[in-house]
Design a protein around this nucleic acid. Sequence first.
RNA 1: GCGCCCGUAGCUCAGCUGGAUAGAGCGGCUGACUUCUAAUCAGCGGGUCGCAGGUUCGAAUCCUGCCGGGCGCGCCA
Length: 555
Amino acid sequence: MYLLEARRAQIREALRQAHRDASERGELPQAPFPPCVLEEPRSEQHGDLATNVALQLARGTRLGPRQVAAALVAGLTPQRIPVLERAEVAGPGFINIYFRDGWLAPAVGEILAAGLDYGASAMGQGRRVLVEFVSANPTGPLNVVNCRAAAFGDSLVRCLNAAGYRAEAEFYVNDAGGQFRKLGLSLEARLRRLRGEAAEVPEGGYPGDYLVAMASRYADERGMDVLEQEPERRITMLARYAVDRILQRQREVLERFGVHFDHFSLESDIRAARGPERVVEELSARGYTEERDGALWLKTEGAGDNDDRVLRKRDGEYTYRVPDIAYHAGKFERGYDLLIDIYGHDHHGEVQAVRLALEWLGYPVDHLEVLLTQMIRLLRDGREEKISKRSGNFISMEDFLDEVGVDAARFFFLTRTIDTHMDFDVELAKRQSQDNPVYYVQYAHARICSILRQAGELVAEADAAPLVHPAETALLRALAALPDEIAAAASSRAPHRLTAYARQTAERFHGFYAQCRVLGGEPAQSRARLALCSATQIVLARVLGLLGVSAPQSM
RNA sequence: GCGCCCGUAGCUCAGCUGGAUAGAGCGGCUGACUUCUAAUCAGCGGGUCGCAGGUUCGAAUCCUGCCGGGCGCGCCA
C-alpha cells in the first residue's frame, strides 16, 4: 500500500472508531459511518489532509456539523496515528489534519524500490478490458481526428494496465460493404485515367491524390490486366489491393505515433463467418425485427431510439450496423469483462441501436462503455477547412506529425478532455509546437538525468529525512500522489489528468532546482536530495510513458 | 422539431465526480545566468464561470428553462 493510501486508511479507521465511541456515549446519534473522503486541501493552511465526513454525518440530525467534527477529532490521537501533529475543526465543519515534518519522506524509498512500476495498483483486479479505437475506414490516410483518438485510446490502455486491469487495444477494419466497393471503383477510375480513358471518380467515391499515386504504383507492379476482369471481380480485387496498402500505411503511422494495437479485427472475416446472418436470424427469432417496404427493420423505436433502423436493405445487402452488431457480439464472446469503444461523436446516433440489438441478443450491455470524442473543427489561418476523406481534403496524420512532432502532438491532444470541441488551427499548432508544455516536462527530466550523471553514484536508498525545505516537501507531495493520479485517470477514463499532473510535478521540480542545491552540499542532505531527484526522474519517466511521450536524457 | 456534447481570463484549455479565496499555458509587463542545463526561476496585471431560477450548511460542478455554438437524426460508414 502506498504512503498516502496508508495514511488515509489509518485516519479513516481512527475516525470510524471515534464515531463508534461517540455514538455509544450518546454524543452522536447511531448511524452508519459514511464513506469518508480524505483529500489534499487546495490551500496548505488547511492541513495535509482534510475531510468533510462531519458535514455528511450532520445532515439530517439536529447537531451542528462543527459539533460532530469535534467529537470525531477527539479520536485522532498520536497513539492511533503516530505521525499526526494535530487535527482541528475548521470552517463549516471540515476536519483538517496536519502531519509532522518528514511524514512524506518514506515516499522516496517507495519510489526507488518500485522503479518504473511505481504507481501501479490492483484497482482493476485483473479484469480484462478490450479498448477499441481509431478503427478508421481503410479508405484513405489517417487524419488529425484519428490522431486525437489514437493518443487518447492508447494512453487509456496504458493507464488501465497500470491500474491493475488487463487491457488490450483493438482496431476494427471496415474492409467490406459499400465504402469498400467505392474505394475499388475510385481506384479503377484512376487506373483508367492513367491509361488515357476519361474515367471519373464515382459520386461519393474517394477523389484524394493518394489514389492517383496508388494507381501508378499498381500499374507498375501488376499492369492493367485487372481492367479486363468481370466488373465485380475487378472491383473487389482493386479494393482489396487498396485496403491492404492503406491499412499498412495507417499501421506505420500509428506505430510512429507510439500507438500499439494488440488486435486488428476485419469486417470481411466477420462476414465470412456469417456473423450478419446469425445476428439477423437471432433477432428475428426473438421478435425484434419487422419486414416493411421490402426491407428488414430492427424495432428500436420506443425502446430508447427515436426511429426503427434498417438491418437489411431492399437490395438484400446488410446495412453497416449488422456486421457492427455481429462484431460486438463477437467481442463479448471473446470473454472480456469490459468493452470500451472510442468513437467520434458523429457516430453517436448509432450507439443506441447497437446497444439495443446486443441487449436483445442477451449480452450484458452494461459491460459496454462507449466513449465519444468530440469533433475537431479544422482551421487554417482562421478559415474553416472541411475534413473528410470523401472530399479528399484533410490534414493527414503524417503531415501533422512531420510538422508538430510526435511528443508535442501526443501531449497536445492529451491536455484536453475528449469532450472539448476543439478549434484546430494547423498553422497555429505548428507555431505553438515550440511552446508546447511537453518540453517543460521533458526538460525537467533531462535536467535530473544531468545531475544524476554528474553525481556519479547510483542512489539505491537513502535517508530522506533531511528533506524539509518547502520546495522539497511540495515536490514530495506531488511524487506521492502518482498512484492516486493513475487510478483516477484509469477509472474516470481520463488520461488527460496525467498531462496536468506531469506539468505540475515538473513545475515543482524546477522550483526545487532553483532553490535547493543538490550536489556538493552537506553530505547527508546532498544524498537525500539526490534520492529525491532520482525519485522524481522515475515519476516523470513513468508519467511520460503512460502518455506515450519520450523522456529524453538530455535536451 | 428530437437526441448527444460544449459555453470558465485577450487566446487555447483544466477544474480531481458538491467543498474553504476559481487555476494553468500562451500572449503582455518587471526582474534573475562567473555555481548541478535560462527549453528555467521570481513577480505584476487579467473573471457577472453564457443567462435566469431551483436543490442545501455550501454550486463552475447537480436539476429545470432559456440564449448561443458543434454533431447526429440515410435502405452511407
